[in-house]
Amino acid sequence: MLTEKKFNLIIVLGIFAFSLIGYVINEPYFITLATKIVILGIAGCALNLILGFGGMVSFGHAMFFGIGSYVAAISAFHSMNGETIDLIFFDFNGSSQMLFNWFLAVIFSMFFALVVGSISIRTSGVYFIMITLAFAQMTYYFSVGWTKYGGEDGLSTYVRNDLFSINTMLPLNFFIICFACLCVVWFILNWVINSNFGNFLKGCKENEEKMRSLGLNPYTLKLTAFVISGAITGLAGALYVDLNRFVSPTSLSWQTSGELIVLVILGGSARLFGPLLGAIVFILLEQFLGEVTENWQFWLGVILVLIVLYFPKGVSGLIIKD
């Protein structure tokens, strides 16, 4: 049994070591796996902020992941083919700069999180689950119908965007970029959780009335958390586009929302960075089972059911001592 701090450190160093090993033995696929873990881990931790700490079960987080993806991909797409987007005040030529596309992705997903959150947070329980799902389905069908950007077939961006003068096409370089993002997200989320705001948010999950009698507004608190979570999930989406150089409506589908929840529960929702462990277990399981059997999803399902029934604290609950 470990303390939470040691546990977090081991997880993060473990991911880093895994990709370094991949580099040393010249197995770029390892590095890609590690990158995927980092990106999904970022999204999972962001979801856990509202799910584990705010008590809001969002079944539509694929929406922010997908919006981040699409915004970054569309910007890169326009920069590639030279076609401008005519905005009322100026023409936008697209961009091949990672930093700028991340910024766009975060701004857009923040905006959507603000709109969706301000409506959804009025409801609670199963209605909250369903209304977040409904909004995500709307964006899904919209992306399917938007033939200009590939519709059902998705949109390819062919090359990775640029960051300073780094060669982002080298797997290890791109991994390190994502890893740096994870560290920043880690820092931000840690700060959020341990601030007064974080304590109030946990208080909202326990007892909203109590928070209200303290003169706080649970609605604003929850909405703020929702927007932070949406913004970070959008960043993960933008990184995912750079990894795959492709985005499709699948990233907005309800199955993706379900998988994000799987990461959170698999890792354990009681700890902020549980989902990072969830991402490791999920990706490795997918990889391992996929090699052993064609019907790996069956066994994944069995394992998930067992975890829900018998290990409600997730995998991290087995490792960390309270």
């Binding site: 799910l51 929840i261 529960i265």
Partner: peptide, 15 residues
């Protein structure tokens, strides 16, 4: 809670 139900029945779909 609803969260466990969502996840377990999501897993049942896979199965």
């Amino acid at each position: 809670d609803h969260l466990d139900q969502v996840l377990a029945t999501f897993a049942l779909i896979l199965i």
